[in-house]
Nucleic acid binder design. Structure first.
Lengths: 276, 276
DNA sequence: TCCGGGTTTTCCATTCAATGGAATCGAGTA
DNA sequence: TACTCGATTCCATTGAATGGAAAACCCGGA
């Protein structure tokens, strides 16, 4: 190629991205390049997913490694770092909620031998804070920290119902809420409204679909002020323990969670590593 | 050069920090301003702890909020954000380890009714990956994501023993490893070496101190290649279940964990939210 | 309602950390 | 050995980041 016939006018060495972008946003995009399916990425993949030039990706990623936010194994591939995890475990509502509710999850799973999970709402999705696998567990897996859609899950519905009409209407309006593709009819706005109203009345959500071999049940957990801050969800085989048995158990657990949470909100047991 | 008599030579408006510092490092310092004792900070506190000018702290913190890395409640105080937590839960070794070992922790706590925890090493400390509280639990609290010192804990000793002589010697050399202040004699280098050797021989650590009402026991968890990747720790009252009973139980659990981990390393159960 | 203080945000002239194309390096591979 | 492809380093260029100061904000008290 000759330098005379080129359309690129000024020939700048280090031209910044056209629209100019904050470093932090770029770094965040690098972190967000990782997801459930790809927890390990090469630099090239990072660069591609984050939409950054290789050199920039390389530089930023190295910095993130130096800060412990990313890890890099000998083979060169990146992964999310432990330091990040340590920091993140300070995030509310994880600490107080998990601390208060974890023993109850233990009990629940001990009694029912089914999947149990604790979820909170984050925008128009839910996030799994903690979970226990029952021995008779069906192969259904939401991992801790993962997303759960609001509409097609019982725990999600509980959070949706608690989220106020604004949330519900927004969700209906945008209409693209997650729904199993093979499930025949995605519920209409009216149906969804009715479903939510039902959950509000009953203070519990029971989700049962003809095509699915499982029933999911969800109950709200409330803080001292009566605000729903989380939901406890359970997944049981449709042909197993009848829901009529599960319901009171879950309701009781939810009330216990309310109390545990209220009690824990004040005092803070301070760590005493010396006595280990 | 100066038109008036002032000692401040050039009078620059936006002078950067003397030594010049990467944005990412500053942002990281902001995040690290949060800890167990202060999970919520005002802007002023962040600015002070991170050693940043108010204006800079304000700008960066807002950006972090926009990215979901920090949360800000109506009163204006900051906290670590949920988004960060979601990202962080992709971190190895949390995912595979917790997934594989969690059911075993459930069993352990169900049988013994004592505290159980899963820890991994991070440099010269250990980090709690998961824990279960026993019903007969003593008020000892390391929260998930928190740090645990290597030397004065059984699980820590296991990781220390597995960490190779370099780690041990470094720790001895710097000599400032954490040790309960009131515990009379901090172990000498020789004592520590002997202790570690003992752990290596027995493939289990039992820590019993005269001043403490608890005994802590730790066993190593190994990956497919036989490398110690984590430790399971248990804390039992000195006057409760005898350690001779606990030992075989923990050993068996550790072997089960090895197998669960090896099995899980290959296949990945893929999430199937449609069947909820 | 208006005031005094403490905290937070915005403004903006200044400048250096960040940038990305190209060259270099390095581990595979034929 | 020569070739390939991914990652790193180099470096001239520049706009994103900076921090002091001023403005905006938020309260509790008068």
């Amino acid at each position: 190629m000759d330098e005379s016939a080129d359309t690129t006018p000024p020939r700048a060495r280090g031209r910044r991205p056209p629209q100019g972008e904050a470093v932090l946003r770029r770094a965040a995009r690098i972190l967000e390049a990782f997801d459930d399916d790809d927890r390990h990425l090469s630099l090239g993949q990072i660069s591609a997913r984050a939409g950054l030039p290789m050199s920039t990706a390389s530089r930023l990623a190295s910095q993130l490694v130096a800060l412990g936010m990313l890890d890099r194994d000998p083979s060169g591939t990146f992964g999310v770092g432990l330091r990040l995890w340590e920091l993140a475990s300070l995030a509310e509502p994880t600490v107080s909620l998990r601390g208060a509710v974890a023993p109850l999850l233990d009990d629940l799973v001990a009694v029912t031998r089914q999947h149990v999970q604790l979820v909170v709402r984050d925008g128009d999705e839910a996030v799994v804070l903690d979970r226990r696998d029952g021995q008779e567990a069906l192969p259904v897996h939401y991992h801790v920290g993962g997303h759960v859609p609001l509409v097609p899950t019982a725990a999600g519905l509980v959070l949706l119902a608690a989220g106020g009409s604004t949330l519900l209407e927004t969700l209906i309006e945008q209409g693209d809420y997650r729904w199993p593709t093979f499930e025949s009819p995605r519920p209409s706005g009216a149906e969804l409204r009715e479903q939510v109203a039902q959950v509000r009345r009953a203070d519990i959500a029971v989700l049962r679909r003809p095509t699915s071999p499982v029933v999911s049940v969800g109950v709200p957990v409330r803080d001292r002020h009566g605000r729903v801050v989380a939901a406890i969800g359970m997944i049981v085989p449709a042909d197993g323990l009848p829901v009529s048995r599960i319901e009171p158990l879950l309701r009781a657990t939810a009330r216990a969670a309310d109390r545990a949470l209220a009690a824990g909100e004040g005092a803070r047991a301070q760590p005493d590593w010396s006595r280990w």
